[in-house]
Amino acid sequence: MNIIVCIKRVADTSEAEIVIQRGGQGLEEEDFAWGINEWDNFAVEAAVQLKEQHGGVVTAMTLGGEDDEEVLRRALAMGCDEAVHLCDEAFAGADAWGIAKALAAAVRGRSYDLLLCGAVSGDAGGGQVGGFLAGLLDLPLVALATCLEVGSGNGGTGGVARVRHEVESGLERVVEVDLPAVVTVQTGINEPRYVSIRGIRKVAGAEVQVLDGAALGLQAAELGSAGARVRLEELFLPPRGEGAEVLEGSDEEIVQRLVEMLHQRGGL
């Protein structure tokens, strides 16, 4: 059971003030804390758990700048066996399509039964990369997995996985999918293990394979912003409080007005 898990380093903006840079092309990142995308963390855990049950090799893969190696180290500390870093200045400004193309190029020729991705990312949140990969590699796709079990599988020569995944209206479906396949992982599928500082340090010396565009056989026009099919024109802050009447005053006054409003709206 060989698994490739695609991960991404994203910013945690939870406590940070969002400040858009002049020109609207980026955010002030000073206050951001960076780390593995939440969904990807569940995907790594799922991959490592499958390996622990069935044996095999788990390869973590990311596309990004030098700092992004951090999430690969973390994945190694969680139990991934190999790490591949798609790193090239020319990748800057890549859209989801560009990321998927580079990942697909890196995946081709490797032996794997499962390709796991987080279902979406905490930053762009389009949920596209997994589906793009399935399309580019001509593999079956199951999106938003909440449970994942595999029967057999030995490096791309067959076997099936049983995947439970979310569809509409709070329903879930259980499907059987031929391997190799792409599965995108929803949060809550497992309890990701903790990665201690020591755990990270222990893999500090582990080898990370670095591949640039040329190594992937990609042309300059396909890379980064040059190859992006979706271009960013401008970032802006969402219209705040649009429609929302923000109550002000002391807690006492606010709550009193709230009670009146609830009363008028039939909430009491």
Partner: peptide
Amino acid sequence: VDDGRLPASLQKPLA
């Protein structure tokens, strides 16, 4: 902790 077995509620504050 070394084994990664930490109550889920502690992961966020430690991170």
